[in-house]
Simulated assay, not measured.
Amino acid sequence: MNAANPSPSVDKLIPVTVLTGFLGAGKTTLLRRILTEYHGQRIAVIENEFGEENIDNDVLVQDSEEQIVQLSNGCVCCTVRGDLVRALNDLALQHEAGTLHFDRVIIETTGMANPGPVCQTFFMDDDVADTYKLDAVITVVDAKHGMSTLDRQEEAQSQVGFADRILISKKDLVNEADYEALRSRLMHINPRASIAPVHFGETDLNTLLDVSGFNIDDILTIDPEFLSEQDHDHDHEHDHGHHHHDHEDDEDGHECGPNCSHDHHHAHHDDAIGSFLFRSDRPFDPERLEDFLSGIVQVYGTDLLRYKGILYIKGIKRRMVFQGVHMLMGAEPGKPWQASEKPNTRMVFIGRKLPRDIFTQGLEQCLA
């Protein structure tokens, strides 16, 4: 199934939210709140973890079998020690048979996981695609250790790059300047995700459910601050103004005082995962654009995390809505261009060390 061509009966599909974030960021705290708060929805939870169940015991009611756990609010938890596709299909069979009742699924990934393969599952397996729709990736980032984690762990950058919503936990443990530095860095890795602080998992669940982040009809959302900074030729090696150091004792909570002897310096973060925006007021030649994009995904598909855009195509009086995940991409007609608006193209690419100049020059050569 193509990432951009959902089933015609998409409204009948079971929505799935992928909850990700690095070790200790607060995923389980957020998940526990979702499971214990009354929200009128029955949720099946898949924990894509190896090892012991990490949902608190006071939430559990009974074991129905090795992998399925009944939670106190009627939710179902499935701990995956094997294949995610098998777990989803098993849940679907029980749902269809009426032995399990749930309205949506939340998948909590292991902290070291790149969410890409999890997302691709919903477009690569026909049985899964016929039952579920991927709604959004929610990524939790630790304000206290987020900068150093992003410096050291490319998986953490991938988690940010795939996100539709980014929640920053533990904001109370850092000052405002450090929080804004982290937020700025996250925004440059992924300008299409909304960013908000979250305190002990307390957030408006309506902002996390039914996001439609993978819905091809969803409009392209890009942080306006990212656009303004791009206009000033900002790149990923810019100075975040963050006083960064790697001392273990600081990560354990020791504060640096005014006489601290640590070697603070302004850090330049050359992130492996980054993003860039392509814009044009000129229309694309459709055949040239299709040939170029097909070649790009063949060469760089494994490094392309998320890409999405509104396309202005020659000879078409409506916008084309385009998106992809890794090597899966597609486009379909969106809303007609209004008389009051000037047709234009906006495309955002998020991936691992993507050659921005090659993409930009290639896209410019596809313009009519």
Rank of each mutant, 00 (worst) to 15 (best):
E37R: 07
G40W: 02
Q41H: 13
R42G: 15
R42E: 15
I43L: 05
A44Y: 01
A44S: 08
A44C: 06
A44M: 12
V45D: 09
V45S: 05
V45P: 03
V45Q: 15
I46S: 00
E47Y: 04
F50W: 06
E52Q: 11
E53Q: 14
E53V: 02
N54H: 05
N54E: 05
N54C: 05
N54R: 01
N54I: 03
I55K: 12
I55P: 00
I55S: 03
N57A: 15
N57I: 06
N57Y: 08
D58L: 08
D58I: 09
V59A: 06
V59M: 14
V59W: 05
L60H: 14
V61N: 09
Q62P: 00
Q62M: 12
D63K: 13
D63I: 03
S64C: 11
E65L: 12
E65D: 13
E65G: 10
E65T: 15
E66Y: 08
E66Q: 13
E66F: 08
Q67V: 15
Q67S: 13
I68V: 12
V69K: 14
V69I: 09
V69W: 12
L71R: 05
L71P: 00
L71D: 06
S72D: 13
S72F: 05
S72E: 11
N73K: 07
N73G: 15
N73F: 02
C75G: 07
C75A: 10
V76E: 09
V76M: 07
V76W: 15
C77I: 10
C77Q: 11
C77H: 09
C78L: 11
C78S: 07
T79I: 05
T79Y: 04
V80E: 07
R81Q: 09
R81H: 10
V85H: 04
V85M: 04
V85C: 02
V85I: 12
V85R: 09
R86I: 06
A87F: 14
A87C: 07
D90L: 04
L91M: 02
L91T: 01
L91F: 01
L91W: 01
L91R: 00
A92Q: 01
A92C: 00
A92P: 01
Q94L: 15
Q94E: 07
H95K: 11
H95V: 03
E96F: 03
E96M: 03
E96G: 01
E96L: 08
E96P: 00
E96R: 08
A97H: 04
G98N: 08
G98D: 07
T99F: 04
L100R: 08
H101C: 14
H101Y: 07
F102A: 11
F102T: 02
F102R: 03
D103F: 04
